[in-house]
Design a protein around this nucleic acid. Structure first.
Lengths: 247, 247
DNA sequence: GGATTTCCATGATCTGGATCAAGGCGGCCG
DNA sequence: CGGCCGCCTTGATCCAGATCATGGAAATCC
């Protein structure tokens, strides 16, 4: 297990001591970070299979800042199947889609043993009143997530969507060229609107062509250019490092 | 033409006199509305076929508040085809997806003769610093758009997507039970990831079943319950009036 | 440590919606 | 006013990816 899920691993809630560099609380001034610390409810462990962090339809009481692990947001359709709307990794905020309406639009649950900081929305709103920089970075975060969602909602082939997904994840969790996907292929398929079998076949086909290597859930991207060519149409993805073409 | 597109129809830029009730500028206090007025660049007419308001890849210089008509946001794929990411109606803000990254993620152009208020982002950021309520409502707007985008990105049948789209549009532009879609069926298809032929066939099929009546671009919804049953899985849509089931 | 369950993998078949084709109809421009 | 072009409509065919079926390999649970 790459991540220590016990609460004792990090006592207190001083955001300035937190190792998660990309967290909202670390994006503004030191003062703002201190303010973040002051409003956080106690941190929580979230386990796969355990109770959801919140459910679709609930009144929105808190957003969650992911500290470790991976959280999925999903709805349940009429047949009882999950439809995954997003994966959230350390530094991400879960629940921004429900902020506007005050109601959770999806259910949030852990994909692997995870840890989240609980940010009560009433406190968050107060913080936004006091610190314009908090509002601004929250707004930017939501805007970026919107950009990704709009890009993903387009009509692309299984290969294109998977390539875009892999590059996106690579940017976020690769260390030294390799990464370990926290979620099962079924979950990837649910998110990308693909059957599990299609995810598997497409990955294998990419491996056969030498674009990547697979072993268990570990993926190493070998031919980035090849994937890029497929994913470029989708846009947005892998934008952070300034890798995307002007197009 | 239901909407007067000449600039002379509304001189000056006093938001408090503007008839668009759902505009951002009208959502906060009177003071905040006055502040909005003060930062607006001159209003613009936008014509179909004329120059785009902005293009994907451009540096983000302004967002646009739709005053009349309909604006579409789209990207162009490798084959030169439009992929529509959203339609914006009076009261909507165009460009929120690019706010975070500072780069326009899509091209924005008029679907019908339209009018937009130009909101320079540098001024908008200053306004957000000064008026927390502006930040808050901008954040809420973006959050709602995110909710819709996430819902739309799911895997639904042609019928379900079209039903959800019709109900969504109905909520936004119906007067007395009937509405006139501003965009062509081809555009609807591009947005919903459907071929033009499928949009046409599905609409006709719904008409045959007595769920709606079609004449030209005018649509009257006859069996709301039927459409709702289809669209409910999609979620989010038609939420404003509290019509959606708890699920 | 054996049983159960979940996940990954691969082949065979099926299908919703795309694509191709072709005609009518209205709107716009010269 | 007549010609052209873009939209809507309907039918025939095709295909990417879903679904069904089956088996092996890990992980999880008594």
């Amino acid at each position: 297990m790459p991540f220590d899920t016990t609460l004792s691993a990090c006592v207190g809630t001083d955001c300035q001591l937190c190792p998660v560099r990309t967290c909202m609380a670390r994006r503004g001034s030191a003062d703002a970070a201190a303010a973040w610390s002051s409003i956080l409810a106690p941190r929580m462990a979230a386990m796969p299979g355990a109770a959801a962090l919140h459910r679709a339809g609930d009144k929105m009481k808190a957003v969650f800042s992911v500290r470790g692990g991976c959280i999925k947001a999903y709805t349940i359709d009429a047949d009882g199947n999950e439809r995954i709307r997003g994966f959230y990794l350390p530094g991400d905020l879960v629940g921004l889609d429900g902020f506007g309406g005050g109601v959770c639009l999806s259910t949030a649950a852990a994909v692997v043993p995870s840890q989240v900081c609980v940010v009560p929305v009433c406190e968050l709103r107060k913080l936004m009143q006091r610190w314009p920089s908090v509002s601004l970075s929250l707004m930017e975060q939501t805007s970026r997530e919107l950009g990704v969602a709009l890009a993903m909602s387009g009509d692309y082939s299984a290969e294109q969507r998977l390539a875009a997904f892999l590059l996106h994840m690579r940017d976020r969790l690769a260390v030294g060229g390799a990464m370990r996907l926290p979620m099962a292929q079924r979950d990837v398929g649910s998110y990308l609107r693909l059957a599990t079998e299609t995810v598997c076949r497409t990955l294998k086909s990419m491996e056969r062509r030498g674009w990547l290597s697979l072993s268990d859930k570990n993926i190493r991207i070998l031919d980035e250019a090849g994937l890029h060519e497929l994913a470029d149409v989708v846009g947005i993805f892998h934008a952070p490092a300034g890798l995307s073409k002007a197009a």
